[in-house]
Every structure is written in structure tokens, then in C-alpha cells.
Design a protein around this nucleic acid. Structure first.
Lengths: 147, 147
DNA sequence: ACTTTGTCGATTAACTTAATCAACAATAAT
DNA sequence: ATTATTGTTGATTAAGTTAATCGACAAAGT
């Protein structure tokens, strides 16, 4: 019951992008360094975000990627769905055909309710929320050092 | 973000066991046939359930497995945890040491809230609930045939 | 031209999953 | 006692997935 690194990294990349929005476009290299993600790997995670119109990329010197959808409109369920495919705790939720028991299976109904619960939660969190939480965390850390 | 077949099959096996409780002990062979699970595979899935005291097994003729914990006391979060390990959408939830960002990572906090949301939902569902839902489904199916 | 920066498809090593198999242990029936 | 039945356990394996990495390429600014 794990999220792959694709969803995790893409989320971190988007928060990073939101936090440095005033310096856009941002280099993949910088996101990779700050978020400790392999740049080669990150390149592949960016593609679906561009395709979905969440970010745009510009090549060449002074290029990089830029957040175009506003952070409060980017919800985690969308990010996860884009990077990992449909949220579904079991295969038969998306493809009922893969199991002949689908129509009459009570456990399947419960997995579908679990899917709904997870989706509802993820939909309630935006990149804006994550950015604010991160700012808050960093502020606390400063205070900690101060003490 | 998938449950493995271990959790799915074990859940189905427990519901099957609850539905045939009056005929206990139940043969693994029969559960495997009714639930369309490989018997060889199922053998491995019942071990943790025995270890947790949810079922007991008796060998030899007239043997099989018997539910000893009552169905309304068996919660799905326990079943999933036993078969798949701790519920955690990302590795750093259980092992904060695997990622040095753990202490200062806002996304990690959100994954932990997701874990809590999932756990709460799974804890709210018991094998008894699933058994009743299954009975209800089978009743509806009969009516369907009737029409 | 040349450098910078993103894009894309192919490949790969490591890991996980979902089984399967064989040898074994316990128990009931005869 | 012997035999048939039933669960137990550890080893093995084929297939699939994950998390990268690599190289060749395309676009854009200087």
C-alpha cells in the first residue's frame, strides 16, 4: 500500500516550484538539488505535469519550468493521478473485467469506499497548503536554532 | 497505491470463514475453491492469521481452520497490517531514518495524515460488516434471477 | 556557431509479487 | 500400527514493477 517515488517526488517538485515562483523559470537542476531527486529521473516526472497544463517549460539559456496553474488550484489527488494513474487500492476497481467476482464481491465495495476516502483526503490538500506548511516548518526550525 | 493480493485474499478468506462458521473447521481447499484463490498460496496467507490468534488450525482428517476471534472484533486495519505490514503510504512514515528530510518535510506530514485517514477507515470496517454486506448482495442476486 | 536547457525513447539492475513445489508434521479413522 | 488426510514450512522461480541512467536530440538565447 505504497505511493511510488513518482508521486512523492512530483509533489515535492511542485511545492518547490511554488516556493520559488518569483524566480521562475526554475532549472530542473535546482529543483533536483534542493529536493534531493536525481535530475535524470525528475525529467521524466515533469512530462505529465506539462501535458496536464500545470507547468510550462522553456528550453535554452534562462529556460526552466514555470508553474502556470495557481498553487491553490493544484490538488494532490490530481498530482497522484497524473503520476501514478488512477487511485485504486485494488485492480478490479478500475478494471472490473479483471475479476469475474466483481459484480458480487462485498470486499470490492469496501475497497472502492477506501479509494473514495483516500481521494477525498487528497483532494482536500493543495500545493498552496503544502507550501504554507513548509514555510511554517522552516520558521520553527529557525526558532529552534535560535534557542 | 495498491493493496497486494495478500491483503485482498486474506480478507476474502476471513469473510468466507465467517459465512461458514457453523461448518467449522473449514478446509483450506474449500476456501480456495469458493474464493478462487490458489490453495498453495492461501496456505501462506493463513499463517499470520493463526499467529495473531484470529484463527486456529487443526491437522488431519476432519481438520481445517476455524475462526476463533468473533467477526465483529476483526477489523480490516488489523488484517491488512498482518498481511502487508504497517499501513504507510511512503517508506519514511515507518522508517524516518531512510530520508534525512523527514524532520523538515511538509509533504511527509501530509502522507502521515493520509495514513491516518486510511487506517481510520479500515478500522471502521469489520469482518462481520463484510459478511452482512455479502449476504445482502447474494439476496439481491437471487431476486434478480427471479425477475 | 555555440552553449544552455528541456525531451524522449531505450535500457538496466534491483526488488517485489504471486505463485508453485516438495518434504514434513500432526491427527483421525481403520 | 498403518494409512489417509490435512495443515506447515522453507526454497525456488517467473513475471512484473520500480527507480534510475544513458545517449541522442530539439529548441532557444547570446
Amino acid at each position: 500500500m505504497k505511493l511510488s517515488t513518482r508521486g512523492q517526488y512530483a509533489t515535492r517538485a511542485l511545492v518547490d516550484l511554488a516556493m520559488h515562483r518569483d524566480e521562475a523559470p526554475i532549472l530542473l537542476k535546482d529543483i533536483a538539488r534542493r529536493q534531493q531527486i536525481s535530475q535524470r529521473y525528475l525529467e521524466h516526472l515533469i512530462t505529465p505535469l506539462v501535458a496536464a497544463g500545470i507547468i510550462v517549460s522553456t528550453r535554452g539559456p534562462k529556460g526552466g519550468i514555470t508553474l502556470v496553474k495557481s498553487p491553490e488550484e493544484i490538488r494532490l489527488d490530481e498530482v497522484i493521478q497524473l503520476l501514478e494513474g488512477a487511485i485504486a487500492p485494488v485492480e478490479c476497481i478500475n478494471n472490473p473485467g479483471t475479476c469475474i467476482r466483481s459484480r458480487s464481491c462485498a470486499t470490492r465495495d469496501v475497497w472502492d469506499e477506501l479509494r473514495q476516502t483516500m481521494t477525498d483526503f487528497l483532494r482536500s490538500v493543495t500545493i498552496q497548503d503544502l507550501m504554507e506548511r513548509q514555510r511554517e516548518k522552516e520558521k520553527s526550525t529557525e526558532v529552534m536554532y535560535y534557542i
